[in-house]
Amino acid sequence: MAAGGDHGSPDSYRSPLASRYASPEMCFVFSDRYKFRTWRQLWLWLAEAEQTLGLPITDEQIQEMKSNLENIDFKMAAEEEKRLRHDVMAHVHTFGHCCPKAAGIIHLGATSCYVGDNTDLIILRNALDLLLPKLARVISRLADFAKERASLPTLGFTHFQPAQLTTVGKRCCLWIQDLCMDLQNLKRVRDDLRFRGVKGTTGTQASFLQLFEGDDHKVEQLDKMVTEKAGFKRAFIITGQTYTRKVDIEVLSVLASLGASVHKICTDIRLLANLKEMEEPFEKQQIGSSAMPYKRNPMRSERCCSLARHLMTLVMDPLQTASVQWFERTLDDSANRRICLAEAFLTADTILNTLQNISEGLVVYPKVIERRIRQELPFMATENIIMAMVKAGGSRQDCHEKIRVLSQQAASVVKQEGGDNDLIERIQVDAYFSPIHSQLDHLLDPSSFTGRASQQVQRFLEEEVYPLLKPYESVMKVKAELCL
Rank of each mutant, 00 (worst) to 15 (best):
F433M: 09
S438E: 13
L193G: 08
G109T: 08
R338G: 01
G394W: 08
L258I: 09
E148I: 09
I424M: 13
P16A: 10
P446R: 04
F208S: 03
A388E: 08
I339F: 08
T201W: 01
V247K: 14
V413E: 13
V115P: 15
F327M: 03
L84R: 08
V465C: 05
H437R: 07
C27T: 13
E463G: 10
I105Y: 04
D398V: 13
V254L: 13
Q41Y: 11
L128E: 03
L179Q: 03
L252T: 12
E64R: 08
E250C: 10
A103Y: 09
K295A: 03
R374P: 07
M65S: 09
L482T: 14
V198K: 00
A453W: 00
A22I: 12
V262G: 09
Y13W: 14
G214Q: 14
K101V: 08
L121R: 02
G393Q: 07
I386A: 06
S15Y: 06
M312K: 06
L423A: 06
L341H: 11
C266V: 13
R149C: 13
I385Q: 05
S447F: 13
S12W: 01
D87V: 01
K470C: 14
C399L: 07
M312T: 11
A150V: 08
H93V: 13
D216Q: 09
E213C: 10
K415E: 12
Y472M: 03
D333R: 00
F232L: 11
K170A: 03
Y365K: 05
Q356P: 05
C399H: 15
A348E: 04
R374G: 09
G54C: 05
R190F: 06
M76I: 05
L132M: 10
A335W: 04
S448M: 09
A206C: 02
S434Q: 13
K264E: 06
H159S: 01
T347N: 14
P293V: 02
K391R: 08
E376A: 13
P162L: 12
D216E: 15
S301A: 03
S31Q: 05
C340G: 09
F282V: 04
C483R: 13
A431R: 10
S15R: 15
H97P: 06
C99S: 10
G4I: 15
A348H: 01
R149W: 12
R137V: 15
L132R: 13
E360W: 01
S23F: 06
A110D: 09
Q63C: 05
Q286K: 01
H400D: 01
Y34F: 06
T330M: 02
D441Q: 14
G156I: 00
L311R: 03
Q397V: 06
N68W: 09
W39F: 06
P153A: 12
E228L: 05
V368Y: 10
A256G: 12
G116M: 05
D144Q: 15
Q285T: 12
A453R: 01
R141W: 11
G419H: 10
G197V: 01
S359R: 14
A22L: 10
N71P: 10
K101A: 11
I269D: 01
Q428P: 02
V115W: 03
K479C: 12
A392Q: 09
W45C: 04
H310I: 07
A308G: 06
D117M: 03
D216C: 04
R33H: 02
A3K: 15
A49V: 10
N357T: 11
W175L: 04
I106K: 05
V92R: 01
R372C: 01
T227W: 02
G393V: 08
D11W: 14
